[in-house]
């Protein structure tokens, strides 16, 4: 464990808590892409199956349960409890165009061709594009509430911090995982224009307006 990965995990946890709290408090999921949340739940489910086969640390196990529980709780709030506030018209990204290519790529490019490894690889590829429905929705609505942009900033920062973690691990342990690194760079790059808007607008108290 290193400071980059720890702060990355905390940024990830904070993002999830911001979102869950916003939906719960406002009793509304307006402006939130349920499709992205479904993809995240799929990412955690396929990545954390090793919960039953291998034990890394209490921290690792605890965080995996937290990510799984909060992602399904978020989906429950969006599609069941506050489904009347779910914005079907703007959450229209075709997620099958993200799931199927990720699965195909995971079957072609992986470290080992076994069930858990291919699913882990699938979750890595899928996570790198899982935010697209949310970013697409924000671009369609042309704006995002500031709390949603804080959520996106924290979520985008988590994988950016993981990149620093991978650099640190390569420098200190000689350890690297190209699949995780390439996907993590793609994931972070997807947030770049949002980061720019967040820094230049939201932090100045303006609303996040995306060029529609």
């Amino acid at each position: 464990m290193n400071i980059f990965r720890l702060t990355g995990d905390l940024a990830h946890l904070i993002a999830i808590i911001i979102l869950l709290h916003k939906i719960w408090k406002s009793r509304s999921c307006a402006g939130i892409s349920g499709k992205s949340q479904v993809l995240f739940a799929l990412v955690y489910t396929t990545r954390y199956l090793d919960l039953v086969t291998s034990y890394v640390s209490i921290y690792n196990t605890f965080m995996k349960f937290v990510f799984l529980a909060t992602s399904y709780a978020t989906i429950y709030l969006i599609y069941v409890k506050f489904k009347a506030t779910y914005d079907h018209n703007h959450d229209t990204f075709r997620i099958e165009f993200l799931i199927l290519p990720s699965l195909a790529l995971a079957l072609l490019i992986n470290h080992y061709f076994n069930f858990l490894e291919v699913l882990w690889t699938f979750s890595i590829y899928l996570e790198s594009v899982a935010i697209l429905p949310q970013l697409f929705m924000v671009s369609k609505t042309g704006e995002a509430e500031s709390i949603t942009s804080h959520y996106l900033f924290a979520l985008g920062s988590y994988r950016a911090l993981y990149i620093l973690n991978w650099i640190y691990r390569y420098a200190t342990e000689g350890h690297y995982d190209l699949i995780a690194i390439v996907a993590g760079v793609v994931q972070t790059v997807l947030y770049c224009d949002f980061f720019y808007l967040y820094i230049t607008k939201v932090l100045k108290g303006k609303k996040l307006q995306l060029p529609a």
Binding site: D50, N60, K64, F67, E117, W120, G174, H175, D177, I179
Partner: peptide
């Protein structure tokens, strides 16, 4: 080296 010990990451 490759994937195995990456699995200590979330």
């Amino acid at each position: 080296d490759t994937g195995t010990d990456t699995k200590d990451e979330l």
